[in-house]
Design a protein around this nucleic acid. Structure first.
Lengths: 192, 192
DNA sequence: GATTCGATGCTAGCACCGCTAGACAAGGGA
DNA sequence: TCCCTTGTCTAGCGGTGCTAGCATCGAATC
């Protein structure tokens, strides 16, 4: 029994190593550079080992996304918890979101841009993803305004931030007015 | 002279054929299916011919994007020109934008998601791209509100629509509340 | 009309991709 | 000690974007 337990433990360690290495490589050189060959070489195993942990590259992206969702939720809560004023809290939330997207672009892509095989906005959505959305909602529901569904309001705010993040990083939005865009968005969307 | 002119004409025809075929293939089966081999086979030439017109696949995507920018601008203007009320015009604009994104996903991706090697929001930005942004601005500047830079306002509105379009298509936003999201966005952002 | 010669499109091939079949070795259980 | 399961490896499949170098075709010249 103990032998099997040790093996399972070692397998789990190696699986975390794969995910961490994939993430590291993606942040360093982009997801295009995360090939199964390079990834295998970095973890010092052969390619087929990857497929004994994940069905394919997509699932590895999904694993990085889940890890990222947890970190993002934590970052959002950390940035908002110390702020008392509801409106200021929303501003802090927006900045924390955009900072996360800018400082961890590969993780952000795994979450919101690439196909990691994860279900969103459904029953079988992983709890970590639901919780990341919940982290947004917690700061947003109180400024949604009367008669507006907090979930829908959160979706609108989130989609806007997502647009900022992706269009800015791909060079389609100029960086110079980033702050004014955030101010305008919060000013107009947040009631009170 | 006439011989050379004829050749140039034929070259231009073939170049348009490449772009049209790439676009068609991308809309039918997604950009992943647009490989240089398949594209070459469809236009009934060998692969290297593609490289006598474009530096690589990226430039072909860029060509599709430019074509799409012109169509998008036309679609946006067509949808808004007949609407008199400024606020209703913005709503029509939003719907036209989202309809374009949903009905021509491959072209939309070439424009706003993939790397087509085009410059955005710079001096050397192609006129067609500037004009597509102008088409947005024309309907939005009059509802930007006082003291707000129309360009910045347009960027915010556009980024939000982009978030809706991309997150909805990748299954990250549920489609059922799409209409309510648009209403909320227009309600809050448009002044008067 | 024959001949030269440059332009043009082709075949073949590079290094790389995601993924997998099948050989092989190491280790625990009898 | 032997067997057999488990796990990992090598090698290879069909695909990718892209390119070197050859062959052919056609326009211009003699």
């Amino acid at each position: 029994m103990s032998v099997q337990e040790r093996k399972e433990r070692e397998r789990a360690v190696r699986e975390r190593l794969i995910v961490a290495t994939a993430r590291e490589l993606a942040e360093q050189q982009g997801w295009d550079a995360v090939t199964t060959r390079r990834l295998a070489e970095r973890i010092e195993y052969s390619q087929p080992v990857l497929y004994s942990h994940f069905r394919g590259k997509r699932e590895i992206i999904g694993a990085v996304a889940l890890e990222g969702a947890a970190e993002m939720a934590a970052a959002l809560r950390a940035a908002t918890s110390a702020v008392d004023d509801p409106r200021a809290r929303v501003t802090a939330l927006a900045h924390a979101y955009l900072d996360f997207a800018a400082s961890s672009p590969a993780v952000y892509d795994a979450l919101f841009q690439l196909d990691g095989g994860l279900a969103f906005a459904q029953e079988d959505t992983p709890e970590l993803l639901k919780d990341a959305f919940a982290a947004l909602l917690e700061s947003l529901e109180e400024v949604a305004g009367g008669g507006v569904h907090p979930g829908v309001f959160t979706e609108v705010f989130w989609a806007s931030l997502h647009g900022f993040a992706t269009l800015t990083r791909s060079g389609r939005l100029p960086p110079e007015y980033a702050e004014r865009r955030v101010e305008l968005l919060v000013d107009r969307l947040a009631m009170v």
